[in-house]
């Protein structure tokens, strides 16, 4: 019971977009798909949802192909940055269309959410601002009876209040009806407490794939006087560094050596997800990801 992405490659005009992607997306989990601009996140989500084709590789849901397959495609929903709805169509009609094709669409919940977000369902999709287009697509994503929901930039154009409301609703609906959410966003801090598992897509490859606690357990900020920090981190997997006056911070990803003595002047803390991501994907520093 999972979505299996195996050896997926994607290139366009000779340029590699995705390079040998292998992933498993399990049921009833909240994932974060993180990557810098142009890393290939949207392309990967589009391939999973069969909106575009991979150059090679396979994507299956419970061992059934997702390519041109109503049965499997009907079990997932991708809320994308690209607007695929007709601009002239009223939102109520778009909800009707979704109900018609997906089946048990939760119309009551959609109406409640529209009221909470102050979205007029009689408006035409094309008349909405960027933020309200996002809100409409989020409402559909939260109410659609799919097992796997992919959210590509789900808070694009939303103000802080609406973002907060969305995260609350996401947690509530997930508690009531657990299903898989894969969230691709640049606002890592905001989703850090929501996601259980993280994929980092960097330079067209998956460089990190693991549960959030495990990953954060393996990431450290080692701060102190420059010489002491350098001495302690020699040979460790340093993914980044900062310097302020005489104080140096080295960011390390991977296990520390237990037998290595820690100088009194050196402080070791765990990184948060955003700091880890920034350092892992900042290629001015030499990062080695294990």
């Amino acid at each position: 019971m999972s979505i299996q992405i195996q050896a997926v490659n994607q290139s366009f005009h000779g340029q590699t977009i995705l390079d040998n992607i292998n992933l498993t997306i399990e049921p009833q989990k909240i994932y974060g798909l993180l990557g810098r601009n142009g890393a290939g996140k949207s392309t990967l989500l589009n391939i999973i949802s069969n909106r575009i084709f991979a150059t090679s590789g396979t994507v299956t849901l419970d061992e059934d192909s997702l390519v041109d397959n109503d049965h499997t495609l009907g079990r997932l929903y991708l809320m994308s940055e690209v607007n695929l709805y007709n601009e002239r169509t009223k939102l109520t009609k778009l909800l009707d269309v979704t109900t018609r094709f997906y089946g048990d669409f939760d119309r009551d919940y959609a109406t409640q959410l529209a009221a909470k977000f102050e979205l007029d369902l009689n408006a035409r999709f094309g008349k909405l601002s960027t933020g309200y287009r996002t809100i409409f697509k989020l409402i559909v994503a939260l109410c659609v009876p799919a097992d796997y929901i992919f959210l590509d930039e789900p808070v694009l154009g939303l103000d802080a209040n609406h973002r907060e409301l969305f995260y609350q609703e996401l947690i509530e609906t997930y508690s009531e009806r657990p299903r898989t959410f894969v969230i691709s966003t640049h606002l890592i801090e905001e989703i850090a407490n929501l996601i259980e598992h993280v994929f980092v897509l960097d330079q067209h490859q998956i460089t990190v794939n693991g549960s959030v606690p495990d990953i954060l357990d393996r990431s450290y900020a080692i701060t102190g006087p420059d010489a002491d920090v350098r001495q302690y981190t020699t040979g460790l997997n340093i993914i980044g560094q900062d310097q302020l006056g005489g104080i140096t911070a080295h960011y390390v990803y991977g296990a520390l050596e237990d037998d290595r003595p820690i100088p009194d002047t050196v402080k070791i803390e765990h990184l948060d997800l955003q700091k880890l991501f920034v350092n892992l994907t900042n290629h001015q520093e030499v990062a080695h990801v294990n």
């Binding site: 949802s49 069969n50 041109d68 495609l73 997932l76 695929l84 269309v97 979704t98 094709f101 997906y102």
Partner: peptide, 16 residues
Amino acid sequence: YEHFKLLIQNGISRKT
């Protein structure tokens, strides 16, 4: 294309 994008958004295959 107009129909295709609406239908693929709603989990309908090209064949259907």
